[in-house]
Design a protein around this nucleic acid. Structure first.
Lengths: 248, 248
DNA sequence: GCCGATTTGTCCGTATGTATC
DNA sequence: CGATACATACGGACAAATCGG
């Protein structure tokens, strides 16, 4: 239920690309044609298309048109090893994972925690350790730090279900953005213990560290997400000249 | 030299955020005020701001304003270990790296290469192996595959300088976007040989695999970029509700 | 090479909706 | 409630790139 017109057009076009209505390397209808068929203004069509560009679904070419560059997963899996397809298929089949809460404590940020998380010293925090399973296999070990007064009333039960659902549906807080850093780190004893990796196999983990902000502009979460390297995969689409500004 | 108005406004605002004119958590002037000071329309200001949102520099809040959430590197380096700062500083000080070409051959894609790169079997390709140094330390080992007829006249000399400069400045080809996958892979003999890593230290590499498209909609490059894990860092900003479309 | 038709890119002004204060 | 601020949408104008005749 998209409230905005441009978003419903965006979704409609996205579906048509995914189901093959527009094939790889084929041109989409011109903006003018889309304006006609959707009964909206040109700006609205252009916003929808800009979203597809950001997703790496299409590319726009001045004077030519909009070309589809989306390839279905089967055709895009060249780089994927034998194990990855297992996880991919699990996700596709909606085999949602289980979450096990290993630790749930309330702490006050000391200097060490502060410098690790970016929260000011003295901040009241929840510190949560969670293990995420997919199809019974422990894949991700999360270390969460939540600002207590931004996420009041957190419990281990909520942590086992979904903290984000709680924040958005119960607290009606809006999560805005998340600055992430991906790195590779040496495996720790905790990793070994819970992920049951043999050291001789992999001696490191894929780590995503993220700082997340809510709509009050408050950095309310720091999370370090440690992934089993053999199951880890992070997708990204980089634009040389981003659609709306941002010429990085 | 931005040709477009929104881009010059975007850059100006970005600089003001980076130099501290607008501080962390401070509100930027309202759109109306920016319209006045830049002498442009509201749409133009909004495009500039949308770029900053995508960069994770600001967040917009309906009814409230636009808040700066940018923190200078010194304050954002919590997650950064002792070694990383070394590389960061090297990059900041423009200590550009050297590139050594290990291999430069012309090949025809067989079934194996095809399934690895995504190029059609029979494609004429350049295969290039390059080692990138920073401050004398070999950090990245690249395996490049370029479509020969999209990047004609490539030489080892160009590969040692900059292939992208050649493509853009000499061939006048426009690079549009790049679909990337980040993963962690076991270290290979080649990695060990050139990056001089001790196996007992790290037995894996951070790998960025990318498919790059030009403005003809042709996937003209596949690159596997293998990074020394202890120096690898990948930054990203994820939006919960992307600025212009893209509700992924 | 030129010209005109088509297509995307930039920019403007305006109107209305919605959230905040 | 009104004032302010951002969000969505429309319509129009002109520029720039492409392509065909």
């Amino acid at each position: 239920m998209p409230k905005s017109k441009f978003e419903s057009i965006y979704r409609d076009l996205k579906l048509k690309i995914e189901d093959g209505t527009y094939e790889y390397r084929q041109l989409l209808p011109s903006e003018h044609a889309l304006v006609q068929s959707y009964g909206c203004s040109r700006n609205t069509v252009r916003r929808a298309v800009a979203g597809l560009v950001a997703d790496g679904y299409v590319q726009t070419m001045q004077g030519k048109g909009v070309r589809c560059i989306f390839r279905p997963v089967e055709q895009t899996s060249y780089t994927i090893g034998s194990i990855e397809s297992f996880k991919e298929s699990s996700v596709r089949n909606h085999q949602k994972g289980r979450t096990r809460v290993l630790q749930f404590v309330e702490i006050t940020a000391d200097q060490k925690v502060s410098s690790r998380t970016g929260f000011a010293p003295g901040s009241e925090l929840y510190y949560i350790q969670r293990l995420h399973y997919l199809d019974g296999i422990p894949l991700i070990l999360n270390h969460n730090y939540f600002l207590k007064n931004a996420v009041p009333g957190l419990t281990p039960e909520i942590a086992e279900a979904s903290i984000y659902e709680y924040i958005e549906d119960t607290l009606h807080q809006t999560i805005v953005n998340s600055k992430r850093v991906i790195s590779v780190e040496k495996i720790t004893e905790i990793d070994e213990k819970y992920l049951r990796l043999n050291v001789q196999d992999y001696n490191c983990m894929a780590v995503i560290s993220s700082h997340t902000y809510n709509s009050d502009g408050v950095m309310f979460e720091f999370t370090q997400s440690r992934h089993r390297p053999d199951y880890f995969r992070f997708y990204d689409n980089a634009l040389r000249r981003p659609a709306y500004g941002s010429t990085g």
